[in-house]
């Protein structure tokens, strides 16, 4: 867009730059503010007297002898044993990503290589399933899960999250596989491979960029989910997000809001690293869905 046609008058240039800066502040400032505030005491982060206390940490200085304190983190990680929830989240995310990629890859590959009419309807069905709010499905799970006595444990949640993930995974992998030339596996089949061998030895080696991108979105879905994890996990098996929600009920009364603030910051750090290292893949994944859409 550096063509002559796009040369802009000074006024407009200033206005757009200003708008971009405004947008950046809007997008980033809440996180910076909360990160900074998580090292303060509650009376500074929620200051009645003077809002600059949240910056300087006046009460924190008075209470802990330094304008920064790790008291909130100590409280949530050690006293409330937040590390247990972190481990649960790791387990859930790991298995959800692995399982949904394995079965999604097989299904997406089949959809991209079959020319029958039912593939179209399968994709449309997946789109309808994608539109179902997870909480409506959860109200369908609860009674059977209670009856079969599998409520509250991690494997149940993992399988449910994998299933909720599938429509999206299928759409995305379907479009990635369509970009891999059909001639590759056709020629392998001419050489005597079965369809599965063609998939295993010809397609698998070249599919990783698409699979990694899809995996990132599966991870985000499992990591960010609240509806399913909060309803299907018992208190001792909670992952991070429902645990933070549970803090809200108890901490507001006990005056330990800073536990929740530090837990929120702890839970956002992995997402920041994810965007930092996989920005390109996230952008390409978002647009891949749109172009096909």
């Amino acid at each position: 867009m550096a063509g002559n046609a796009q040369k802009m008058p000074v006024g407009l240039r200033v206005a757009t730059s200003g708008f971009v800066i405004f947008w950046l502040i809007l997008a980033a400032f809440p996180f910076i503010w909360t990160f900074w505030g998580s090292f303060k005491v509650e009376l500074d982060f929620f200051s009645l007297t003077n809002w600059t206390n949240a910056l300087t940490g006046e009460r924190t200085q008075a209470a802990h002898g330094s304008p920064f304190t790790g008291a909130g983190y100590r409280g949530s990680w050690i006293q409330e044993e937040f590390w247990r929830n972190v481990i649960n989240t790791l387990i859930v995310c790991f298995f959800v990503v692995c399982t949904s990629l394995t079965i999604g890859t097989l299904g997406g590959y089949a959809l991209s290589r079959s020319s029958h009419r039912y593939t179209f309807w399968l994709l449309i069905t997946a789109l309808i399933f994608r539109a179902m709010p997870p909480i409506t499905l959860v109200s369908g799970y609860l009674l059977p899960f209670f009856e079969w006595n599998i409520w509250g444990i991690l494997p149940t949640t993992i399988i449910v999250l994998v299933a909720i993930n599938q429509p999206f995974t299928l759409w995305m992998l379907h479009s990635f596989f369509q970009n891999i030339p059909k001639e590759l596996d056709e020629s392998a089949k001419v050489d005597g491979c079965t369809q599965f061998q063609a998939f295993r030895f010809v397609i698998v080696p070249v599919m990783w960029p698409g699979v990694i991108t899809t995996g990132l979105f599966s991870f985000l879905l499992a990591y960010n989910d609240f509806a399913v994890t909060s309803m299907l996990l018992s208190a001792s098996n909670r992952t991070m997000v429902p645990e933070i929600a549970a803090y809200l009920g108890t901490t507001y009364t006990e005056g330990n809001v800073m536990f929740a603030v530090s837990a929120v910051v702890s839970a956002s750090v992995p997402l920041f690293l994810l965007v930092m290292f996989f920005q390109r893949q996230i952008v390409s994944g978002l647009t891949a869905g749109a172009v096909k859409g």
Binding site: I103, G107, A110, S114, L137, A163, Q166
Partner: peptide, 25 residues
């Protein structure tokens, strides 16, 4: 048949945990 076997795992997951719960509600 090949399509069926490739698609079976994901279809099972979606039938059991998306379609069945809709019937269940």
């Amino acid at each position: 048949t090949t399509f069926f076997w490739f698609f079976l795992p994901t279809a099972t997951a979606m039938l059991l945990f998306i379609a069945a719960p809709i019937v269940s509600v």
